[in-house]
């Protein structure tokens, strides 16, 4: 057994010196998540060619190394772009990435003549930045609902929500689409106002209770304005994330 293993190693070393890329072996390493062996194998490839960079790009994408992927992708762009699956996986990966600069670099650098999935994901990326650039018909039926939901919220202004809440407490939440919260906020503001008025009327404005009530009312009133402003921003983020997730699931 030892002999046969040693002869195997020898054959293996000779095979390496010719630096032939064994694609199936790379797939085997990737499938079994053998990161150490995968790294060693790619490092052992002495020939510098597009193919080597392509496999390194694939490796870095699998193990979520953004910069490693981008470096190797740049060196083997033509070959990478021929691999539809790789481009789709990378697009889906970057679309869900938090680093805005990396996402921008990736999608701006994509060739327009790529496959349908990639085009769809690029469009989803652009729509996530500004949904007004497109109409609902641009997207497949399965994505239209998610897109429209995001577009509707995107066009809502956080400042308008704050303004509405300043006039009628809680109405900003209603504007943001949170009907239940509107009623609760409105009632609580009314209650705080009522108790402030009662204590002011009976004890005078300088009484500690009136001051406490007035302070509580002011704090609640102002936080309701800020809350409405933030509700629109949060809803935007939430719908955007949902749209991106739906697009990723659909095109991948």
């Amino acid at each position: 057994m030892k002999r046969s293993l040693n002869s195997f190693f020898l054959t293996f070393c000779i095979a390496f010196s010719f630096a032939q890329i064994d694609v199936k072996f790379i797939d085997h390493l990737a499938t079994n998540n053998l990161i150490n062996e995968h790294t060693s194998y790619l490092n052992s490839l002495t020939t510098i060619s597009d193919s080597v960079y392509y496999f390194k790009a694939k490796f870095n994408l699998k193990y979520a190394n953004d910069s490693g992927f981008m470096d190797n992708y740049a060196k083997s762009k033509l070959l990478c772009q021929k691999d539809t699956l790789l481009i789709n996986q990378a697009s889906a990966y970057f679309l869900n990435n938090n680093n805005k600069l990396v996402i921008q670099t990736w999608f701006n650098g994509l060739n327009e003549n790529t496959n349908t999935g990639c085009l769809g994901l690029t469009m989803a990326y652009k729509a996530s930045l500004d949904p007004n650039l497109y109409t609902k018909e641009t997207f497949p039926f399965e994505l239209q609902r998610s897109y429209l939901k995001y577009k509707r919220v995107y066009n809502k202004k956080p400042v308008a929500a704050a303004f509405f809440s300043a006039i009628i407490p809680g109405s900003g939440k209603l504007y943001a689409g949170k009907t239940k919260t509107f009623f609760l906020t409105f009632l609580l503001n009314a209650a705080y106002a009522a108790q402030t008025m009662e204590s002011t009327k009976k004890l005078g404005i300088k009484n500690p209770l009136s001051i406490i009530n007035a302070t509580a009312f002011t704090v609640f009133y102002l936080s309701n304005i800020y809350g409405s402003y933030k509700a629109v921003i949060d809803l935007r983020k939430e719908r955007k994330k949902q749209f991106i997730t739906d697009a990723t699931n659909f095109y991948n």
Partner: peptide, 8 residues
């Protein structure tokens, strides 16, 4: 060494 074994 691990790579050699894996290749085998």
């Amino acid at each position: 060494s691990l790579l050699y074994y894996e290749y085998a």
